[in-house]
Amino acid sequence: MRDEDTPSSSLEPPDPNRVLTRTNWAALRHAYGPATDAPEMLGALLNADQSVRTRALDNVHGILHHQNTIYEATVPAARYVAAVLSDPRTLLPVDKARGSFPGCMRAELLTWIASVADGVRDAIAFDDYPPAVAMRGMRPLLFSAASTYVDDIDRHVSEAALAACIPLLDDARLVHHRAALVPSVREVLGTSELWQHRERAIDALDDWGEDSSGLEGQRNPFLFCDTDLSPDDFSWHPGSREGQHEEPPF
C-alpha cells in the first residue's frame, strides 16, 4: 500500500511521482474495483485545465474515498495528496458546486485529508482492518503536511489545514501538538464563516479540555439557523463533499 522505499510513518513527504509509479495499484481496490485508474485520477489534480482538476477532485472523493470509506487505495492516495500539497499548482482554483466549501485546490485537498483522518479516529473500532491500520500509521506524515498551512495567509487554506489537523491529533504520537494549536483553533477555526468549522473548533476544544466559551457553533445543524448554507447546500462536515457515510467494508 506504499511505495517500496518509504515507511508510512515517515514525516518526510514522498516523491509524488514515485507514489504513482511504484505503487502496485492493480493489487489495491477502491470503491469500484481494482485501482488501476488511480494514478490518472491523482495526477489530474494538478492538470492545467480547471475542469480536469475538478473532475479529478470529485473522483478522489467519490472513488478513492467513496462516502468517506477507507479503501486499500485510499492509503497511497493520501500519501500522494500529502506529497503534492506544497506544489504551486495546488493554488489553482477548482469549480464549485452549490454547497462546496470555498478555497483553491490546496484547501480542497486539506479537506480531503480531514475526511480521511476522521475515518480513522481512535474512537472507531476496526478489528485490524488493514487499510485503516495503515492510515493510522500514516497520521504523523499527514499532520506534518497539513500543519504547514495552519498559519497560511489564505484564510480558506488555513481553516482547512486546522480542520485536517484536529482528528490527526488523536494519535498518541501527536497529542503533544494540541496545546500549540489551541489559539489558532479558537481564533481562526472558531470564528470561521462556516458553521461546520466553528462546530469542529468547539468540539476539539471541549475534547482537549480547553475553554470553548464565546464560540458560536450550531449544535443542531438540521435547524439551519445560520445563513452559511441552506438545507439544499448542507454538507455534514468539512471532510465530506457527498454529505453522507456508508458502512465501511470491514
Score class of each variant (00 low, 15 high):
T6P: 09
P7S: 02
P7W: 01
S10L: 06
E12D: 10
T21G: 08
T21A: 12
T23D: 03
W25C: 02
A26T: 07
A27Q: 12
L28F: 03
A31F: 02
Y32M: 01
P34W: 07
T36F: 04
A38K: 01
E40N: 11
G43A: 12
G43V: 00
L45S: 13
A48I: 02
D49G: 03
Q50R: 15
S51G: 03
V52Y: 07
R53P: 11
T54H: 07
R55D: 10
D58R: 07
V60W: 00
H61Q: 13
I63A: 01
H66A: 12
Q67D: 09
Q67H: 02
N68W: 02
E72H: 05
E72R: 02
A78T: 07
Y80F: 15
L85E: 04
T90P: 06
L91T: 10
V94M: 10
F101R: 15
G103E: 06
G103P: 05
C104W: 03
M105T: 10
R106F: 11
L110H: 04
L110V: 08
W112K: 05
V116C: 15
V116N: 05
V116S: 12
A117Q: 06
A123L: 12
F126T: 15
D127G: 07
D127Q: 10
D128P: 00
Y129E: 12
P131Y: 02
P131I: 00
V133W: 04
A134H: 10
